[in-house]
Amino acid sequence: MKRRIDLLGSHYTVTILTRPGETHMTVDTEAPRPVAITKVTDTKHLIHMGENRAQVQMAVKGNMAYIRAFDRTFVLGIVNPVEQAAQETGSSSTTICAPMPGMVVEITAAAGDRVAKGQPLMTIESMKILTVLTAPKNGHIAGILFNPGDAFDKNAVLITLAEKKEM
């Protein structure tokens, strides 16, 4: 399995290959090394790597590993590959279309703004229900095509996004 692991602000590509009886780890383009883990207590683990061995205290929650070792505490994040790829790209321009006919209630971004995936951009009202439209990806707002109070039809293009700020 191959994943990106973030540690102290750096990204590492870590590959773990498990075959019956042995596990190898490859970091970036370095040579693979045999690795193993032995659980001593709930938090205490022994990590074996080649000839080397280290005792660490560790807790894992979701994609985060919290490790105390070498008199320090570290936080390691394992990045999901789909999210990683989505982070790394942000290519073509895209549009946010109305999921249903309705009216614009509030606009929380402006043309030219840099927005992050998931950031709320517009609240619309339809069938007495408020819906918040969020940025589908990282990018810049190319245009907001409706004003608060404006009505629109289903599939109307409400907001356009661009990868780069358009001059």
Partner: peptide
């Protein structure tokens, strides 16, 4: 070496890797 040990610890205890 320390960095690799940490990465190994995270990877080997991760469901993402070891599922």
């Amino acid at each position: 070496e320390q960095r690799s040990l940490l990465l190994a610890a995270a990877a080997l205890s991760s469901r993402e890797f070891m599922d």
